[in-house]
Amino acid sequence: MKEVVAVVRINMMNQTKQALTDCGVDAFFAHEAHGRGKGFVNPQILEGAEQGYEEAAALLGEKGKLYPKRLLTAVVEDSMVECVVDTIINTNQTGKPGDGKIFILPLLDAVRVRTGETGEKAIV
């Protein structure tokens, strides 16, 4: 079993949910999140600051600004990981900074509370 954690843009959530369902993943969690990448500076903001626009200059000073995102978590069988990762990439990839990140973590065990089932039986 693996836990797939993905950070995606908010405006891509509906498409991502549908694409994951189409891939065969009906169970996952979505959380509100805020974060930032390595410090990408929008060239339009930089140009505006150089031209003397105070609003643009103020935005450049927001090094600590966090952007709203969605954090998706899905626990899947090992055989589903490639489909899940490919689906998230294909749905969210624009080629621009901020498209997101995907993390794949090993999962030792899972337990279904209702029945006490463990392992992959607990997640299917």
Score class of each variant (00 low, 15 high):
residue 64 G to L: 06
residue 74 A to V: 14
residue 112 R to L: 11
residue 95 G to I: 07
residue 27 A to W: 04
residue 33 A to I: 00
residue 51 Q to H: 05
residue 34 H to L: 13
residue 64 G to Y: 07
residue 110 A to S: 08
residue 56 A to N: 04
residue 83 C to N: 10
residue 16 T to L: 14
residue 62 E to W: 10
residue 44 Q to M: 04
residue 43 P to M: 06
residue 124 V to D: 02
residue 3 E to I: 11
residue 66 L to E: 12
residue 70 R to V: 15
residue 44 Q to D: 04
residue 39 G to F: 07
residue 118 T to P: 04
residue 20 L to W: 10
residue 4 V to P: 03
residue 74 A to W: 07
residue 56 A to W: 04
residue 63 K to R: 10
residue 70 R to D: 11
residue 105 L to P: 00
residue 33 A to Q: 06
residue 77 E to F: 00
residue 41 V to E: 12
residue 41 V to H: 07
residue 79 S to R: 07
residue 73 T to F: 09
residue 89 I to P: 04
residue 103 F to H: 04
residue 29 F to Y: 13
residue 95 G to E: 06
residue 67 Y to A: 10
residue 27 A to G: 10
residue 117 E to S: 04
residue 62 E to S: 08
residue 4 V to Q: 03
residue 49 A to G: 10
residue 45 I to Y: 06
residue 90 N to I: 01
residue 31 H to P: 02
residue 7 V to S: 13
residue 68 P to Q: 06
residue 33 A to Y: 05
residue 51 Q to V: 01
residue 122 A to Q: 03
residue 115 T to A: 13
residue 108 L to Y: 01
residue 3 E to W: 01
residue 101 K to R: 09
residue 57 A to Y: 10
residue 72 L to T: 08
residue 110 A to D: 00
residue 33 A to E: 03
residue 30 A to R: 08
residue 58 A to C: 06
residue 71 L to S: 10
residue 30 A to C: 14
residue 81 V to Q: 09
residue 101 K to W: 07
residue 34 H to W: 13
residue 35 G to T: 12
residue 3 E to M: 15
residue 91 T to D: 05
residue 49 A to R: 01
residue 84 V to A: 09
residue 80 M to L: 03
residue 32 E to K: 12
residue 16 T to Q: 09
residue 9 R to Q: 14
residue 56 A to Y: 07
residue 116 G to M: 07
residue 31 H to F: 15
residue 89 I to A: 09
residue 78 D to Q: 03
residue 107 L to I: 01
residue 108 L to S: 07
residue 37 G to P: 11
residue 81 V to R: 05
residue 45 I to G: 02
residue 98 G to E: 01
residue 77 E to S: 03
residue 14 N to C: 06
residue 38 K to V: 14
residue 23 C to G: 02
residue 100 G to D: 05
residue 40 F to Q: 03
residue 34 H to V: 12
residue 38 K to M: 15
residue 20 L to N: 13
residue 104 I to C: 07
residue 46 L to C: 01
residue 89 I to G: 07
residue 105 L to I: 02
residue 59 L to R: 11
residue 95 G to Y: 09
residue 55 E to N: 05
residue 115 T to I: 14
residue 66 L to V: 13
residue 123 I to C: 00
residue 104 I to K: 03
residue 94 T to K: 06
residue 86 D to Q: 15
residue 114 R to D: 05
residue 26 D to T: 13
residue 67 Y to Q: 05
residue 110 A to H: 04
residue 2 K to Y: 13
residue 5 V to N: 02
residue 11 N to L: 10
residue 117 E to I: 01
residue 115 T to Q: 06
residue 54 E to F: 08
residue 40 F to S: 03
residue 109 D to L: 06
residue 34 H to F: 15
residue 68 P to S: 10
residue 29 F to S: 15
residue 124 V to C: 04
residue 102 I to M: 01
residue 11 N to G: 11
residue 47 E to K: 14
residue 47 E to M: 04
residue 21 T to W: 14
residue 61 G to R: 08
residue 57 A to E: 11
residue 56 A to M: 12
residue 28 F to Q: 09
residue 120 E to R: 05
residue 13 M to P: 02
residue 1 M to S: 03
residue 33 A to N: 03
residue 2 K to F: 14
residue 53 Y to Q: 10
residue 12 M to L: 11
residue 28 F to I: 15
residue 122 A to E: 02
residue 14 N to L: 11
residue 31 H to N: 13
